[in-house]
Every structure is written in C-alpha cells, then in structure tokens.
Design a protein around this nucleic acid. Structure first.
Lengths: 201, 201, 201, 201
DNA sequence: TATGAATGAGATTTCATTCAT
DNA sequence: AATGAATGAAATCTCATTCAT
C-alpha cells in the first residue's frame, strides 16, 4: 500500500467512524453530509469521492457492524474452549449477540432500524474485505455441523434471525412487553423448537 | 354531529387518506406536508390544525391500518362460520393477514417500516374510536380461549407478531430467502410450537 | 353601565392585561394575537372586535402604562406632604419614575422600546379615560408653577424626558456605561441646568 | 487577496448594501431574507453563509453606518481648516451629524430605531475593519483635548449622545415638539452645560 | 357579540449536490 | 485528489385575518 493509498484509507475510515457516531447519536435522517464531513475534518466535496450518498455510507456501516457483532460472538465461543452441541452453539451465538446489543443500545437502535435480511446475508456471505475474516465459511460450517441433515437451513436461519432481531429491539430498548432477561428463556426455547423442526430425522 | 363537526371529520379523513396514498407510493420521507395538504385540497396551515407533524399523521395511520388488517381477519374468520380449535384460530388470522398484505404490498411496506410493538399494542388495545370496533375484547378473548392456561400470554403474542411481521416483509416483497407460500408451512409450524410451549399443562 | 357593557369591559381588560404580560416577558414581535386571545380566554376573532391589530393594543398599553408611572410619581410627591421648589419637584418626579422602572425592568424594556414622544404626549395630555385622573392639568400646572416664566416649556420638558428615557434604559438594564445610582447625580445636575437655562429672568 | 476572496467580499457587500436599502425603505421587520437575497442577486442559502440571521446583518449595518456618520463629521471638521475650542469641536460634530441625518431621514429612522449605546460604543471603539479608520483614537483624543480634566468623560459622552439621538428622531422626522432648526439652540446650550459641568476646575 | 376553523402567503432554514479553483 | 462557496429547491411551520355559524 502506497502512502497515498493509506492516506485515502484514513480519510475513508474517518468518514465511516464519524458517520457511525452521528448516526447512532442523532439518527440517520437528522445527520447531514455536512455534519459528517466537517466532523471528519474533510471538505464536503470530499465525501462524494468516497460515497455515493448518505445511504451508501449507512449501508456499508450496517453491514460492517453486523458482521462485527457476529464475528465477536464466534470468537467468544471459540475462546471459551468448550465443546457445544449444535443447538447450544446457535444459542451461544445468539446470546452473545444479544448481550453485546444490550450493552450498546445505540448500536442496536442503528442496526435494527436499518438492517434487512438482504443486507445481513450479504454481510455474512460476501467475500469479506481484507481485514474481515470470512463469514461464508462459518455460515456454511454452521449449517453443516448439525447432527441431522437440515430441511431448508436458510429458512431456518432466516426465521431465527428475524425473530431475534425484531423481539430484542423492543425488549432491550423499551422492556416491552418484558425486559431481555425475562424474554430470553422463551426466545431460546423457541429457537430450539425451530431447529428441531428442521431436522430431517 | 353538527354540520361543522362533520365538516371537520371530512377534512381530517381527507388528510389521512391522502397521506396514506402518498406514504405508500413515495415513502414517508419523500412525502412533504405540502404534498399532503395540496393533494387533500386544504391549505397547508390546515394540516397543522389536525396533526402535529408528519410523524403524528404517520403513527395514526399505522395504528389505524394495522387494526384494520386485524379486524378484517377476525371478521373473515367469523364469516367462514367454521369452528376452529385455538391454534387453528390463531393461524387462520395470521394467514388471513399475510394474504391481505401479500395482496397489498405497498401497505406491507408502509406498515413494516413503521410498526413497533408499542404502536401495535396500543392499536389493538386502545379504546377504539367510534367507528372501530373494540379490539381489546378480541385480544382478551384470544387469550382466554386457549384450551390450557397460558404462561405469559403477552410474550407469546409478542413473539408471534414479531416473527410474522419481520419474516413476511422480506418474503413477500423480495421473495427472500423464499416466497411467502414456501415460507408459510415453516412459519405456521413455528407458531404452533410457540403456542404449544406456552401451555401450562 | 349595563351588565353587557361590564362584560365587554372585562373582556377588553383581560386582553389588555394578558397582552401586557406577554409583551413584557416575550417581547412584542414574538407575541402573536393567538397567544393573547387564547391566554385571555377568548376566541381569536374576538380580539378583532376590540383592537385593530397588535400595534393598536401595544400603543394603548404603552400610553396607559406611562401615564400610570407618571401618576404614581405625582401621587407619591403629594403624599410626601413636603413643599418643594420647582426644580425639586421635577427631580422628585423623575427620581420616582426612575425608581419605579428600576424595580420593574420588564416594564422599562417594554416602554422604552415602544415609547415615542408623540405617544407620551398624548398619554399625558389626552383627556384621560374615566378611571385615569387628568394629566393635562398636572402638566399645565407643572409649567405654570415655575418661579420665572419659561422660554419654550415644551422643548424643556421634551429634552428632559428624552434624556431620561434614553439614558435610563442603558443604565438600568445593562449598567452601561454606569449603573443608575452612579448616573443619577450627573443626570439631575443636567436637568437642573436645562431648567435654569429656560428661565426668562 | 485571491480572486475567490474578492468575490466573497463582493457578495457580502452586495448583501449589506441591498439589506440597507430595504431596511431603510420598508423597515426591518417588513424586509425578509428572501427579499435581500433575491435583490442582491444571490441564492437564499448564500445569505446564511455570511450572516447568522436578519438581526446579525442589521447590527452590522447599524454599527457601520453610525461610524460612517461620525467619520464624515470628523473629516468635515478637519477639512474646514479652522481651529476650534473644545466645546466648539463637540458641537461642530454634533451639528454635522444632525445635518447629515436631516438630509437622510431614512437613515435616521433606521439608526435610531436600532441603535443602542453598546452598539454605538463598539462601533466607535472596536478596532475598525481595514477600510474604516480607527475611531478609538479620535474618541480618546476627544476626551484628552478638553481644556480641563474631565470628571467621568464616558458618562458625559453617553449623556450627550443619548440626548441628541433621542431628541433628533422626533424633531427631524415629525417636527415634534418643534423642528430641528428650532431645537438646535436649546440642544447646543444643553450640551455646553453638560460639558461645562464635567470640567474639574 | 362571539366563535374558531380555515386560509395561504410567506418566513426561516436546511442541505444534497455541483463545480471552479 | 481535495476543497468549500454557491446554489436553490424544498421543507417545516407561523400567523394575521376572514367569515360562516
């Protein structure tokens, strides 16, 4: 990487970080490109050299941040050194992500409001950037690891993710209808049921 | 109702209908209050006599439209004249709502992007306006009807609603990861499992 | 006065009092007719039955409040029971008015920003309303009382009033260039000089 | 100065001049920022690149115009080539300013309605912009020039300025209670008295 | 007299985007 | 590649005034 390239990288990172800070504190629609550029210490015009518009930078952030969440959960599981069964693995990861989000409500708010399955899937399966590790393998491994063949594994994962992401928003941010801790047992039991019902025994 | 009152009602309805049309075709953020007022045939200032701002009218629409969906489903069930078991009832209603939404994708888009559990709950349980029938009763009846006592019925309903609303968005609008028809069996099986696991037998 | 008339009077008074409160706390330009009417407990349209517009009510208030200031000063002088010389009389009144204003800064602010010589003169010399006592006499008496004939008494009074009203604004509200107490001796000496130089000896 | 800078200066000047024209002919409150921008030939948004709001541009104009008045008077005195005594100097300047104002009633109207001692003082003593000459020196010289030491020179100047500005408004614009020419002798005599009484002999 | 819904012009302000430098 | 002045459309919201009831 030449010095120029690294300089460009720095600008881009600065824009991404600043935008994330503003999006999570003020919301996307109340953050202007002016805000982002001036806080990042670059000129307004420079923003357009790196991103098409506000939604471009937002999508890249959502994808990046959700893959980070997932990566952290996987690493945390590996670090634990324990051996888990298949369902345990899934729930470990879900649980870890929920805990991360409940520690970081502005991130939760940002991701929930802007995440879509398509974005999530591309974040998980797209060839990661240099610095990211590759989720595609993990995702496939996750599917392959099951003790029985899975009927429609993608639907299964889709339902689990949608169930979690939509319930945790309300539970963590508003304790509605109950707080996260009270919700967890019901959520995990439902996840177990979903997985179980996808086994082809 | 005096002539004045009925006139006011007409204005408000006209604003609500026009706003709904614009929100669903152009999206909320691309719809301006100017648009709404001029299309509704009232002066801009008049808008502010009835609504605080764009988000006020949006919330009222979301609440109204979701309660309409639910009402139509319940009526359709009654009209069918059949006798259903508890789980069958729930699934009948879910199925009916999903079919309504898949017929009306712009409504789905509008509601999903703007629905939150709090809004939904208040739409269901708030004392309906004169013209609405009262959902509170239905909601309570739904809970009371179960063949066994329910452990945390609100959590159960919450999970079902969140699961449906978030999965159907992607399935109906983008056929991602699969289309609605392909998703339905898995969804309904999951609903059955959720209900079953809340029974206190 | 019939009951109807007294009712009208009450409405008008309520509007005047409310407007005064709002003018002094928020300023004239930030007070809307809506504010006045709703706080006074009457409909917006009713305002227009009593006043032409915001400036009409403002002018009536300025005139009324400045004549009140003057009346209070004169009464306070009478109440003191002392016998004063001519210059002493004038200074007593000036001093009393300044003290009133420095106790009531919002009144000072309101009057200073909106008082003009024309308005003041009409407040002093116009045939007072029923409840006001008549200043015309006092004004004339003031002129007649001088120990020598006065050369251009109106110019004299004009200069005194303008000098006081413009200096006290800055002195009382901002202590600029000095506070009122420090300013007073210089002010009074100047008043003495003005009077003295109008004597035709 | 680069081409860009000179261009910016031109824009700002154009805005200032246009605003002054509109303020003096229509009054401040009836002049909108839209008016100013469109008449100055710039886009509305451009206004906000140079001024915070209408009151910002107004204050800068008042300060600028009052210092111009004063500068013109001082220059006119210098040009006359005569040698004046101290009191004569002050009265020369006052007289010159009054004549300027009576030639330019809209300027008088604009300044009087918006001038405050604080604004005036900052116009006189603030380090002038490049194009202005520095009044601080003149102001200090004016004080130092007196034939005797002055007791509280700032109060003296304050009283003179306030007396003049408030009396001339009514005299020039409405000939109330008398026209400017008739008022002048009384005014100047009062100024002489004020100065005289501040001498420490 | 009194009301207050309706008006609609118009004020202020923001901001994505362009483009000359 | 970087800048940031300029744009000007568009958004939100206010408010004096009218007029049917």
């Amino acid at each position: 990487m030449t010095k120029l390239d690294s300089n460009k990288k720095k600008k881009e990172d600065s824009l991404l970080n600043t935008a994330f800070g503003l999006f999570t504190t003020q919301g996307v629609s109340k953050t202007s490109i002016s805000d982002i550029a001036s806080k990042a210490g670059v000129a307004k015009g420079t923003f357009y050299l790196y991103f098409k518009d506000k939604y471009d930078i937002r999508n890249r952030l959502v994808a990046h941040k959700s893959s980070q969440l997932f990566r952290a959960a996987v690493e945390s599981m590996r670090a634990s050194g324990e051996k888990y069964g298949y369902t345990e693995k899934v729930i470990f990861i879900v649980n870890d992500i929920l805990d991360q989000l409940s520690e970081n409500k502005s991130l939760l708010n940002f991701i929930s409001k802007n995440l879509s399955w398509g974005l999530f899937k591309s974040a998980l399966t797209a060839p990661g950037k240099a610095e990211d590790f590759d989720f595609k393998d993990i995702y496939l491994e996750m599917i392959a690891d099951a003790p029985y063949p899975l009927d429609q594994p993608e639907i299964m994962i889709f339902m689990i993710i949608e169930l979690i992401s939509s319930t945790c928003y309300s539970a963590i941010l508003y304790s509605e209808p109950v707080g996260l801790d009270e919700l967890k047992p019901y959520l995990y039991r439902t996840i177990e049921n979903i997985i179980e019902s996808h086994y082809i025994k």
